[in-house]
């Protein structure tokens, strides 16, 4: 036996892993998960094959001639759906970003250092942020749909509320983790705390804040897509129609369009980040 061997084979790490595995097994037993549940339905294999075949040959034209004569070409319809999806996401984020930035700054430890309101103020702001985050955007959307009907502004607001909360939470963490050397130097020459935090920590965190905002825009695009399932004219609406009518090639065209948007956003945010970091 090696002299380097630990005296106890079960440390806290092994115990944590074991607990996770046990919890997984318990959940599976409660839900009645068995390998049998994965058996194919009759006709399921054919459906899956047709679906996958669509992936190899996405539609560029209407798969089924449209019922109304003079309908717009397929790619125009697709382009409009992409545009509307982006519009929803942009509207939501332009509401969420100022609110999230303000709440994030107010929730940061750095802003309140040395203030006697530190405890209650941060507690109140963080409670508000938790409230905004805890309700998913689709629930907000359902709520507004029930109260206001199909309303574009309400849909954008439904996206904006939880996004403001998430932005605020992550912004406050990024601000508190940012290097503080320049901020301390500004405080040393007599700058008020808020000014020193904004020009110090916040300025230093700017590349990370921008990158995270881009990531949230990507999330907003996906959420705006899903809003289509409720009848808003985004990509999700077209996806749902294509799926219900078994137009799988059109379905994949929409999915590829969504993928293209997300990849382009990623490239753009990467370029911006490189510029900011210099």
């Amino acid at each position: 036996m090696s002299p380097l061997r630990r005296p106890l084979p079960f440390g806290p790490r092994a115990a944590a892993l074991g607990a996770i595995a046990l919890a997984g097994c318990a959940a599976a037993a409660l839900l009645g998960l068995t390998p049998g549940g994965l058996a194919l339905r009759p006709g399921g294999l054919e459906l899956a094959r047709d679906l996958l075949r669509g992936a190899l040959a996405p539609a560029l034209f209407h798969e089924v001639p449209p019922a109304t004569p003079g309908a717009a070409p397929f790619l125009v319809k697709l382009g409009l759906a992409v545009l509307r999806t982006l519009t929803f996401a942009l509207a939501a984020l332009s509401l969420a970003l100022p609110a999230g930035a303000a709440l994030g700054l107010l929730a940061s430890q750095a802003l309140w250092q040395g203030s006697r309101w530190r405890g209650p103020a941060r507690w109140a702001v963080r409670a508000l942020i938790a409230l905004l985050r805890s309700v998913h955007e689709l629930l907000w959307a359902l709520l507004f749909l029930a109260a206001l009907g199909l309303n574009t502004a309400a849909a954008a607001l439904a996206l904006a509320l939880p996004f403001a909360g998430t932005l605020a939470k992550v912004f406050s963490e990024l601000i508190d983790e940012a290097p503080d050397r320049s901020g301390r130097a500004l405080a040393l020459l007599g700058a008020p705390t808020a000014a020193a935090v904004l020009l110090g920590r916040v300025a230093e965190a700017l590349p990370d804040l921008a990158a995270y905002t881009f990531y949230r825009f990507e999330c907003a695009v996906r959420s705006a897509t899903i809003l289509g399932f409720f009848g808003y004219p985004t990509l999700g609406f077209q996806l749902q129609l294509a799926f219900e009518d078994l137009r799988f090639r059109e379905l994949w065209s929409h999915l590829y369009a969504l993928l293209a948007v997300v990849v382009l956003l990623e490239l753009w945010s990467g370029a911006l980040r490189r510029r900011l970091v210099a």
Partner: peptide
């Protein structure tokens, strides 16, 4: 604070704000 406003300090690591 008023006194500190009249004391210039050149830091070893300069402590400038990089993105400004």
């Amino acid at each position: 604070r008023r006194e500190q406003a009249r004391v210039g300090f050149v830091h070893q690591d300069l402590a400038l704000v990089p993105v400004l």
